[in-house]
């Protein structure tokens, strides 16, 4: 593999495709954690989104319904699960780590159950309609960038169009400031008359919704099938990326891009470098992440109130 192939249009496009679900699910988790809630059930939400998206699209697909409805269904599932998590962590003040892992186990099984009930055991090939690629007229013909950025599905375009401004809003507007303040010092926010509980509810529901939408990407825009293993794995990576990015948008996006690139590169290396066992290349993303995590350890400053439930009457 020569040097130019490391930046070929096809490889970079593969990187963008691999990074997209990490971007969506990771942004959801970033919002949740900036509000002070650690959601360890993220991977379960991602796989639930994949399952709901696949099942709804498959069931409605026979009626010619667009796969976008599957994404909307996944978002709805995320909202419901987000309300459950919010109630448990904000209202009941159950420990966030406990509820997160519980949600992970619950949703992992729920996802498979939904898929099995919706699709069942069939002797015919399961065909899940996927979103088609949309070429942006004019821009799609730009060398390299055209194929990388302007030949994506509607999902990809919407993800960038909606979430990039959202990340900007989190760090450049009063609304974003309030959210981050709740994650740092909820008592101060409460003293100013703002509803800490409502802000946390909104951040958790929004985060869970994005997590499920991120999961729906796999069957509806990437593989055309429900694959719980890779969805769960990507969910955990998305969680790690928030920490890797130190709860800041630019490092987070860099991490997303890096992981997407490594994911695409590992497949390319497995094909072109036959003398090395493919298992070594499969390790690449995780080895890299370990190195980076250790290197950035000293500089990671999480939101001060992360994992801590807010109790108005508590004496600090």
């Amino acid at each position: 593999m020569d040097a130019g192939q490391f930046f070929s249009a096809n490889l970079l496009r593969g990187a963008v495709l691999a990074a997209t679900p990490l971007f969506v699910a990771g942004t959801g988790e970033l919002i949740t954690e900036l509000g002070g809630t650690l959601n360890l059930g993220l991977a379960g939400l991602v796989v639930t989104g994949a399952s709901v998206g696949a099942t709804v699209t498959y069931v409605l697909g026979n009626a010619g319904i667009d796969p976008l409805w599957g994404i909307l269904a996944a978002a709805a599932a995320g909202c419901l699960l987000g309300l459950l998590i919010s109630y448990a962590t904000v209202t009941l003040k159950i420990h966030q780590v406990t509820i997160g892992l519980t949600i992970f186990i619950l949703t992992s099984g729920l996802a498979d159950l939904i898929y099995r009930i919706g699709i069942g055991v069939t002797s015919t090939s399961i065909h899940i309609e996927t979103l088609p690629n949309l070429r942006v007229p004019g821009l799609a013909t730009i060398p390299i960038l055209g194929r990388v950025l302007f030949t994506q599905t509607l999902y990809g375009y919407l993800a960038v169009a909606l979430l990039m401004p959202l990340l900007w809003l989190l760090f450049r507007t009063n609304g974003g400031l309030r959210l981050r303040a709740v994650g740092e010092n909820p008592r101060a926010v409460d003293s100013l008359g703002m509803n800490v509980f409502r802000i946390r509810y909104v951040s958790i529901v929004a985060g869970c919704m994005l997590a499920c939408v991120g999961g729906a990407y796999f069957p509806l825009a990437f593989t055309g099938s429900y694959d719980p293993t890779s969805a769960i794995g990507q969910g955990w990576i998305a969680l790690m990326l928030v920490i890797f990015g130190r709860w800041r948008p630019i490092p987070f996006l860099l991490g997303v891009g890096l992981f997407g690139y490594i994911g695409a590169l590992q497949s390319q290396l497995m094909v072109t470098v036959q003398s090395v066992p493919p298992d070594l290349f499969l390790m690449l993303p995780y080895v890299l992440a370990m190195v980076v995590l250790v290197a950035t350890y000293g500089r990671a400053v999480q939101p001060a109130s992360l994992v801590k439930p807010y109790e108005r009457e508590a004496r600090y």
Partner: peptide, 18 residues
């Protein structure tokens, strides 16, 4: 906590993907 959470999620991701 951040480090541990990161390492745990990384391990689980590796385990799931492998």
């Amino acid at each position: 906590l951040a480090m541990v959470a990161g390492l745990v999620s990384l391990s689980l991701a590796a385990a799931c993907s492998s």
